[in-house]
Simulated assay, not measured.
Amino acid sequence: MAEIRIQNLQKRFADFTAVKNSSLLLEDGKFVVLLGPSGCGKTTTLRMVAGLEFPTDGQILLDGEDVTYRRPRERDIAMVFQLFALYPHMGVRDNLEFPLRNERLPRVEIDRRIKEVAGILRIEHLLGSRVGGLAGGDRQRVALGRAIVRQPKAFLMDEPLGTLDAEFRELMCVELRKLHEKLKTTTVFVTHDQNEAMALADHIVVMNQGEILQADDPQGIYNFPSCVFVARFIGRPPMNLLKVNGAVSAGMKRVALDGQSVDVPMIEAAAGSALLGVRPEHVHLGAPGSGLDAQVQHVEYFGSHWIAELTSSAGSLKAVVDKSMKPKAGDAVGLGFDTQRVVLFDATTERLLPSITTSTHKPSMCHG
């Protein structure tokens, strides 16, 4: 296992900066997910940690040892790619054995490791098979196995579930999490899929345009997004954002939405203009006049609940509604919010405004 620390990491390609002055501590034995849209810098960051790319500036430490410009084979890490990267002309056993033979390990040790890993991944019945005839899920297990047999300090995974269909992807998320709980090896996993991130991660690092926007556990990312981008990127449906009337100041416990007074956690910083953020499951529908006036525009049924799309003069929003209710398009309603679940953003900087609830939450990762 290993602690990975990146300090002031930058990567430029001609006039384009792919990673901008990023610093992050990835704790020993944790499953860390780098999450963000395509082109945000997450894969470039992973490749620099792996030694497949060298940074323009900055430093990478593995267990306190500077590995910034070392080759991949000198870093004692294993990487799993989206497209499996297996040798198609070899069988499953040969693929698993290949890195161990390169290390010139004794045959008895190779056999021991192959047996152990095949048991962990439940691929004993595939050891005599050819790689080319395997289903996608089985190929990914073999690719994972080839990484695991090396017993590296860390696993680096670049969208390893991206080519699998939805059912296999969900299954492999469960299997990867079980595997991590068994091996406890430091793992860095890249994805653009927030469901994968939430299901797998001890810690999530959200990136956009080459910058780290937030590093925290899944609950912190979801409940206290550091900025408007994170609020919109995380959650399905995403967080609602409504325009607050007028400026806000420190000490306020109520804000106005379209003239309607709304309770909020006590604000600890001022802003000339603000946005109120609230998750759809923390929006409640009541009788007209009982809260912020809104009208139902559309309703979707999800079995366990409804999702209602609404319009108000403060902005459009969505609400998760209990299955026992059925709001109808055209209904006039009053909206209420769970006060302790509301957050506020500075509308100019789009950064989270500190409040009495956000100040009690301590991010579980170090970054800056």
Rank of each mutant, 00 (worst) to 15 (best):
K328A: 15
H203D: 10
S249G: 04
C40E: 10
P37Y: 10
D346C: 04
I267Q: 06
H284T: 05
P354T: 05
L164W: 07
M365L: 15
T339G: 00
M90H: 09
R47I: 00
S312F: 11
E74N: 10
A287N: 03
P327F: 14
Q59C: 05
T56L: 01
F84N: 06
K253L: 00
E159A: 14
D138G: 07
L121C: 07
V321G: 10
G330M: 14
Q7W: 04
I123S: 07
V67H: 08
H203G: 06
L126I: 02
L144E: 00
R130A: 01
N208G: 00
A50S: 13
A347Y: 02
L62T: 02
A215N: 05
L353C: 14
I60R: 00
L276P: 04
M157G: 06
D322Q: 12
V49D: 03
I267C: 04
L105M: 11
F229E: 07
I204Y: 13
G136S: 05
K11Y: 12
L144C: 01
D94G: 06
D202M: 13
D202N: 11
S316M: 11
L9F: 02
G39L: 03
M90W: 07
Q297H: 13
G246T: 07
A347N: 03
P152H: 02
K328M: 15
V206D: 00
G58I: 05
Q59E: 13
T186Y: 08
P55S: 13
E175R: 06
R351E: 12
E97R: 15
L242P: 15
G137P: 01
Q219H: 12
M239R: 08
E3A: 07
P218F: 06
E3F: 14
V19K: 02
F337N: 08
R351G: 08
V283L: 09
G133L: 03
A197Y: 07
G336S: 10
A199L: 09
S312D: 12
V131G: 06
